[in-house]
Write a protein that binds this DNA or RNA. Structure first.
Lengths: 341, 341
DNA sequence: AAATAAATTGCAACCGATTGCAATATCAAA
DNA sequence: TTTGATATTGCAATCGGTTGCAATTTATTT
């Protein structure tokens, strides 16, 4: 019969020893004699034994599952982060439950509840743009379930965070535009509720100041960065009002791509009239005409890092409370969209 | 104490009834008196009861978990499919374990093993391009674990499949190019091991024949559709050898985007010299210059469909063996990359 | 009111692994 | 050879929900 599952009781019977010994042998308990252990391991393998995780979880009160909540899956960045987390987690015998908030606070709260009910051992989150309050994470904190953030973090919460230096990236991007001779640089970004956008904005502002370019509120544009929002802004503000910049720094490649497409459609040449810098080094940045100068984001590394911190916490190596924030490096990738010279 | 978990025993004690009754009341057993049931439900809610899934799984031998193995996450199509599956599955109280094969057979086999060991109740798969044999799915079939495929399917296996009509989509795309006046249409695609590419190719061929255009092997190009493979092909075969088509049908938008970028770089105008059609309606198709004519893929619908079939099987409505293949509709989305007139 | 049928509820075993503590085996020292 | 120390192994309870079957209630019929 293929049907019957093999249990430690079967192994015990086969070897004429007790199930406790089998259990301990299987989990490498130090009190077990090496010979006995090897016999157990061999028999288990021969009989095709698989641990029943539910019995084990029930008893140990742990699930070997890590929850991941992210805004969306459909970017190279996110899928790289997931690949990084998955690699580290699977090697350690953990499974992932992944869900998308689709930038909605409500869905994020829902997802968090599902994760809680599934009793994940740890939760890794990148916040949705819509999220304003963090009450849905309280349960986790109260119950001592490790909660870590990456990229879009909750600064108010006392959790471990893995981020890039958004300030510096914003500074570098802006500085690059200035060095290309831009004097009137627009910054199109999302609202300031998320650290990533706020810090990039601060970097942008600081670069302007350092190079003695006055920062004016009207240079700085906030919207939700959807395709239509970008198109509308460009057509209404730049084209119609003839309020034309010589450089634009946008905080995503897809919005930069939309911007370039729209601007060219209205007769502007990129980068001669307007230089453009995006963010993320997503695939899209390579295939627009011209290709987009952007900031490279270390996705896989970010995923591996956040997963490793969590796992170290589980195994008792490393303390979540000690590693509060990890900052990863980024690079500016220069392509034609910004090269005036 | 926030600490202590509430169990059915606590509820039983509070109401002075037996745990069995509580269990049955909670799971809507018909034998339980409605009044009793309501009391149980109310008390459970008031006390903040949460089912312990491990105890339940242990006893019921089901995990309420569905495994999903896909090639990659980073496309709009895949993230839509996942969103669709997730929506249906979560509503029914199921969790998802998602993993990426990254187009590698080895990783896919590995992922399948992990899913098996995690005892998923069902497995949903879209095959990697590298997959040649299907032995890693045997375990599931032998053990009666439902196995469903979507998009990139294993035709040899007797599983339920959800696909689009790739033949027709290929036909439509090609027909569109022909109607634009193209006479020499290249087809750049992946190798024929996956149904999606094979069927699109057959559609392409049929359209040529129907419109009395001779199909020649040299029109038809196979490679792995990576960025470099596309660039190399175009530079070596089209540009250097001056073997220039007047239309190209590629089976992904990202490769179409790369093709357009490369061709323009070499002085061709799109669509005047060469009309281009892609596949997938990924975001990238909208931001290239010119934007790409493509086939729209019903991602969310595909995900919902495959998940719903699986869930119906679990609940006993609908029989997996009866629904063998579901075919969803696609549309041709015409954009500038193909409009010669 | 007694007898029979139908509706509810409870008992107790079970799912399979884990673990504190007691029991036994092994080995070295006296 | 006896004793005490140490290394191994086993016993039995436990985690929390589920379910076949028996027991008890309640409703219906005569």
């Amino acid at each position: 019969m293929e049907n019957k599952e093999i249990t430690i009781y079967d192994i015990a019977k086969a070897l004429n020893i007790s199930p406790s010994t089998v259990s301990r042998g299987l989990s490498n308990h130090p009190a077990i004699n090496t010979k006995t252990k090897n016999k157990i391991l061999k028999t288990a393998h021969d009989m095709g034994y698989q641990t029943n995780k539910f019995a084990s979880n029930l008893r140990k009160k742990t699930t070997n599952t890590i929850g991941v909540i992210i805004p969306r899956l459909d970017s190279l960045f996110m899928s790289s982060v997931i690949a990084g987390i998955e690699k580290v987690a699977n090697n350690a015998g953990y499974n992932l439950i992944i869900s998308q908030s689709l930038e909605s606070e409500k869905k994020e709260k829902n997802n968090a509840l599902t994760m809680y009910n599934s009793r994940v051992d740890g939760l890794i989150v990148s916040l949705s743009n819509g999220t304003r309050d963090y009450s849905h994470f309280k349960k986790f904190i109260d119950k001592g379930i490790p909660l870590l953030f990456f990229d879009r973090i909750a600064e108010e919460l006392p959790s471990t965070k893995v981020v890039i230096d958004n300030f510096r990236a914003g500074y570098t991007a802006t500085q690059h535009l200035i060095e290309q001779g831009c004097k009137k640089i627009f910054h199109i970004t999302n609202d300031m509720h998320r650290n990533v956008y706020r810090d990039r904005f601060e970097g942008y502002k600081k670069a302007l100041i350092d190079y003695s370019i006055a920062f004016k509120e009207e240079l700085f544009v906030i919207n939700d960065m959807t395709e239509s929002a970008i198109v509308n802004y460009i057509e209404d503000e730049i084209v119609k009002k003839q309020n034309v910049p010589d450089g634009i720094f946008l905080t995503s490649d897809s919005s930069a791509a939309v911007a370039i497409t729209t601007l060219r459609h209205h007769g502007f040449s990129i980068p001669q009239d307007i230089a453009v810098v995006g963010f993320n080094n997503d695939i899209i940045s390579k295939v627009t005409e011209p290709p987009i100068t952007t900031i490279n984001y270390p996705g896989v590394e970010m995923g591996e890092t956040v997963a490793r911190i969590l796992l170290n916490h589980f195994t008792g190596n490393g303390n979540l409370n000690l590693t509060n924030t990890v900052v990863l490096n980024t690079d500016l990738i220069v392509r034609k969209s910004s090269l005036k010279s």
